[in-house]
Amino acid sequence: MPIAEKRALTEIVLWSVALAYVWMRFTAGWELAGQSFGLQVVEQGAGQVFATYLGVGLFVAAVQIGVTLFLSARGQDPEFRDERDQMIETRANQVAYWTGVTILNVIIIHVVATEAFARGRVVPLDLTSPTGIVFALLAALLLQEIVRNATRLALHRLT
């Protein structure tokens, strides 16, 4: 497998793990392997929210640095991108951008609809609280990265 595909695949796994972690930290509903996750946002203090945010950031940074060092140690230049790689990068960024726009619009509509029609009632993924908003934005960022790398991988295979 070419280096660009390996990198994209590694990043898909990395961002998926980060998204799963965030989902487990912020929600409840079902139980899986001792972890609770689902469609119910669990309210948390600012310290806990920030710790999760920081934890995800450090985890992602550590893995990225690890992958770069691993590839460099094997004599492969992880930063080398030729014109086709750059074209793929641009297209993947476009797809990720529109994914982000779509997710943000869904969040806005969901928050407005919750506020307008379901105030005080239990709704799936209530994002009207600070915890809910942080969860939604963090999940949106992670999902955007998954889509970016999935597009990158698909384009490397198809073009």
Partner: peptide
């Protein structure tokens, strides 16, 4: 020519059109 093997393969298969420079 300063590109990856995958790019040469993609050009040969006519899946990718190179830039004028390449």
């Amino acid at each position: 020519v300063g590109v990856t093997r995958q790019t040469i393969n993609a050009i040969e298969q006519e899946k990718y059109s190179p830039t004028l420079e390449l």
